[in-house]
Design a protein around this nucleic acid. Sequence first.
DNA 1: CTACAACCTCTAGCGGTTAGAGGTTCAAGA
DNA 2: TCTTGAACCTCTAACCGCTAGAGGTTGTAG
Lengths: 138, 138
Amino acid sequence: MNLAIGDLSRRTGVKIPTIRYYEQIGLLPSPVRTEGQQRRYGPAEVRRLNFIRHARELGFEVDAIRQLLGLADDPNRCCGEAHEITKAHLDEINDKIARLTALRDELETMVACDNRRVSECRIIEVLADHGQCQHHQH
Amino acid sequence: MNLAIGDLSRRTGVKIPTIRYYEQIGLLPSPVRTEGQQRRYGPAEVRRLNFIRHARELGFEVDAIRQLLGLADDPNRCCGEAHEITKAHLDEINDKIARLTALRDELETMVACDNRRVSECRIIEVLADHGQCQHHQH
DNA sequence: CTACAACCTCTAGCGGTTAGAGGTTCAAGA
DNA sequence: TCTTGAACCTCTAACCGCTAGAGGTTGTAG
């Protein structure tokens, strides 16, 4: 298996400029090159890039991924660290879900609105109020 | 109530440069100024900025926020429009909730991991394996 | 051996912010 | 009233995580 960057891209679903970008910021190691300076990749890179892509899809920031990859690279290290990173991320997501759900409920009652003028419209009212009271809980 | 930009920042949790940026892109109206060109804000701006911040935290793009705010600014517009926009956002929100929930479930099984060694760690495993097979469904 | 798709580097852009430099204003205390 | 210093001003440039394009080179299939 000796993949050009386009093959790697197709295999992982990561766009070519993004792959080069990941290399540049040190997420992916510099691969071997042909005589003419073209990148060639092996199975290890496919695995690593898939890992990266999946983690990004889960919303991990590049820094977090770097940490996770560091852990994965050192199979003797304690797992607690990965646990911690993931837990923090999970908390953030739960928070977002809660707030989105609150907003949705509010919007849902609003959609019942059928007035002719915005001046009497619940939608606008609720949005304004929502902004107003939100920062108390933060 | 005659707030300087720093006061507004503290009241809303939006950083000062961000407030100026919002003004620049037209999300916030240009406020009144003192003789010496310093910005002064009133309660309307506090409300508006709180709304913006809240919407941004929930992942709405600036353009979407502009639309919603635009409705609120024009009380003579037909409510049907607000209705439509709100409905669109409701769909968006429901979509977001669904995706975040899926994400959370995945992360939650991951944090169940309490191994001492990374080599046996579910988190790393899931990211690696999942990455491997993920792109087929995309 | 040629054609041309795919690669290369480099620069610059995106949205949404944030940070810094270098200078001015406001307001509280002497 | 004057002085100090925190807070403000504008402007430019950086940040993240990509993405796009220009302009040139390489690899490979026919």
